[in-house]
Design a protein around this nucleic acid. Structure first.
Lengths: 212, 212
DNA sequence: ATTCGTTCTTGACAAGTGTCAAGATTCTGG
DNA sequence: CCAGAATCTTGACACTTGTCAAGAACGAAT
């Protein structure tokens, strides 16, 4: 009986701890989301914890309470953001019933992303570059890169499938291609090039049938 | 006659000024070269003028004397470095007399670059990302990107030519593809992945005949 | 050799940085 | 309602940052 009681007590305690952890984690994500605003605006190099705090509803101490240090915060930010990213095209892939439909859905989302989420994406490229210097970023960045590659692969595979064949290139090459094009278009777009988005769409439209 | 004298004096003065300018510029490049050491080691975000000075034979004041500010210095650095970069494959392109020869020459240089100049290239990717935030970098970065695209195009065009046809993709797409692959391989290489270089070479070897 | 302009050194300044700790506040279980 | 834990605020710390100015060292032309 004593065992049962302790068992039950343990279970209650565990449940409480899990709840606390969940709450803790939810708060971390709230903070990360606030931090992303400033990071997307200024970039990694120019963003300080105080700046993040001032542009948010939180004080700078809270960030130190929830994150062991600056790198911890930023890792959490990028992980959280890209978790949403990698599902961006899933609905299009799932619902498309023809190559044309998939193409148009993909291109539309691509254009919208470039238009509306330029700041978040430049942050991603920033952090991926930082990972080349800062070992603490590498694990997360490599993981995210992999899942982005998989995302592109799902699109390409479905596109090929809808034409009754298989993609002509490897997942790595396809990701490199689209990522490179996107990165270049993003830079041009941010530099004020009004034709950057349209040119990207043209290029992708031309490319899809030849690589998939 | 008075006109001739002033004309001659003007010419002498001009020559002196040109000489001073050349000397001034040579010094700037010396300093930029020293700065590149530290920048390649630490990245843009973590590099300060003092750190640069300490890792070099110069004092931090000299940098302020030759550069109007930090951005000016770093612009000069990246411009100087990439000026050398864009000619890297020219000799291979000029001397190759067959597709196999061009392929092997290209791959060898690619591997050597990744192996020996990883630090400089991660700096390039870092600064290209910074350009998405910092307008002052954009002009130089876009220009360099263009010349790198042209460099890749020269290789691809020659490769196609040696097979008696034309590249199958646009310059932009080819650059995006190779740049994306290189960037990914660089990150993996820096993360300690011993197979990253070999995998890049395999991928490129496979790709060349299909895209050119 | 003296003078003058160029080049460089040194030290200082104000602003901003990450980090932390002491205490205020809020929440929660008993 | 209350004690103790969790959460948050505030202010301080040691340090680094870019910038600059005063003057030293140097070189070349007179």
């Amino acid at each position: 009986m004593a065992r049962q009681v302790t068992g039950a007590a343990r279970r209650v305690a565990d449940a409480a701890e899990v709840l606390r952890d969940e709450k803790f984690n939810a708060r971390r994500i709230e903070l990360a989301e606030a931090a992303l605003e400033t990071l997307g605006e200024l970039g990694f190099a120019r963003t300080s914890l105080r700046e993040i705090a001032q542009n948010s509803a939180f004080t700078h101490g809270v960030f130190h309470y929830y994150f062991s240090d600056k790198l911890d915060l930023i890792c959490c930010c990028v992980r959280h953001y890209k978790a949403k990213c990698v599902t961006r095209y899933d609905e299009v892939v799932a619902s498309a019933t023809s190559r044309a439909e998939l193409t148009e859905g993909f291109l539309a989302k691509l254009a919208a992303t470039l238009q509306n989420e330029a700041r978040m994406h430049r942050l991603w490229y920033d952090l991926r570059s930082q990972a080349m210097f800062e070992a603490a970023f590498r694990k997360d960045v490599l993981e995210i890169d992999k899942s982005l590659e998989a995302m592109i692969w799902r699109i390409a595979f479905r596109y090929a499938e809808l034409g009754g064949n298989r993609p002509a290139s490897s997942p790595a090459a396809l990701y490199a291609l689209f990522d490179g094009l996107f990165q270049s278009a993003l830079l041009k777009h941010l530099a004020g090039d009004k034709t950057a988005i349209a040119e990207l769409l043209d290029e992708v439209r031309r490319l899809l049938p030849t690589v998939c």
